[in-house]
Design a protein around this nucleic acid. Sequence first.
DNA 1: GTGTACGCACAGTTTACCTCA
DNA 2: GGTGAGGTAAACTGTGCGTAC
Length: 337
Amino acid sequence: MLTRFFCVLNFFSFRLIIVPRSLSLSLSLCFSLFLKTFHISFLLFTSFAFSRFPSTIIISLSPEMGFDDFSKTGLVLGLGLSELADDQRTTLKKKPAPCSSSSLDFEPCVLTLGFSGGGGDTHRKVIDHVGPHHLYRQASPHSSAVCSSFSGKVKRERDLSSEEVELERACWRVSDEDDDVCNNTRKKLRLSKQQSALLEESFKQNSTLNPKQKQGLARQLNLLPRQVEVWFQNRRARTKVKQTEVDCELLKKCCETLTDENRRLQKEVQELKAIKLAKPVYMQMSGATLTICPSCERVGTGGHGGVADGNSNPKPKFSMPPNPFFYNPFSNPSAAC
DNA sequence: GTGTACGCACAGTTTACCTCA
DNA sequence: GGTGAGGTAAACTGTGCGTAC
């Protein structure tokens, strides 16, 4: 229904305009909160939030203010309802939205709050973006990160039609830096060798940073504290992965050693069983101590020659351990591996 | 004691960028 | 030189935990 009618609703000083959705575009309703001199006027205007389009083009339809007024510095609060294309639905199914509408296939809530900068020096900062199923806290330090909260879901949907590309180009283009905002690209920082070396050095000293250290390091490296924080997080993760790989290799070796040991012991058991069947007299010898030579794996009651040979040797050269021996690779890894 | 807000660390994921066949 | 595969690492998201109020 919304796609077929143009509806204007007046509420006191507010004007709500519902614009028909065209092509694969979606409709969003945006609230603009303008801070003017000592009074606040609310504007309600519509915007198109193209379903395949990460940025929201806001068209001011206020009777009191034109687009120029809108571009003045102020707060912009946008609330959008965007209908999803089929492929987007598929994408979203990967991360099911608890509040998704099954019948309308609307992203139930797209809320943005930010500053609308004026003229050629716009400094917009999206504070929060409430997506269809979660709240994004926008903490990215870059101006290019203004749209980065959209980058996760929306960037996968960047196969825009030519029409939409043209519209995308028409979006806020204020400075070179903000081109990234329009293009919705996430520029990736590449740390210099010096920066990496210093970070590594700091990491060796301490794998975690307190806020003061973080600030100091960031200043020293000419980076943002957030970037230093992220680097340390990723570095810790890499360390853990490496350590896990080392542990895995160790366990593999232990497993191999234990398998060999098990094979040897089973063989030993078989031999003992065979000896028991062949010479049951051993078991009838009172006071005799059954011993095994670990090197030649022969059974005896005393000396290395096996059965006591008549020479009274009070102390056998080898004997079974008094208690069963359970190997623990963790308590004694070096012995087995 | 309980609820809330905040900060931090971590696991997992995404993605820009690089290397190499 | 162009290209795709795979790897690396910066950045992001969600979650859990501790702490202060």
